[in-house]
Amino acid sequence: MSNTDKASNSGAGSRELDPILLEVLVCPVCHGPLSYDRARHELISKQAGLAFPIREGIPVMLVDEARQLDPDE
């Protein structure tokens, strides 16, 4: 996807996950807590077995964009 000038000016590309999002967000499926997988850029809901992607520091809390966790994960 091509970044327009405006997006790069606002520093969207370099954005880090703001820790306050971990305090306010819950799993949209089971409403349980989420844990942050820093290496994979994901928010993990163990209970629902879903990993929500974090793109450019922005958690995407959409069920149809989430990855199904393997049972041993």
Binding site: L21, E23, V24, L25, V26, G57, M61, L62
Partner: peptide
């Protein structure tokens, strides 16, 4: 839309949501 969220100022915490879901904790804001 992620596209919209990418345009918020870099110091504003942003997320992508489905309006129909309960994705924030109770008594948060």
């Amino acid at each position: 839309a992620l596209g919209m969220a990418r345009y918020t100022a870099a110091d504003i915490p942003s997320c992508v949501v489905d309006y129909d879901n309960m994705m924030f904790g109770e008594a948060t804001f």
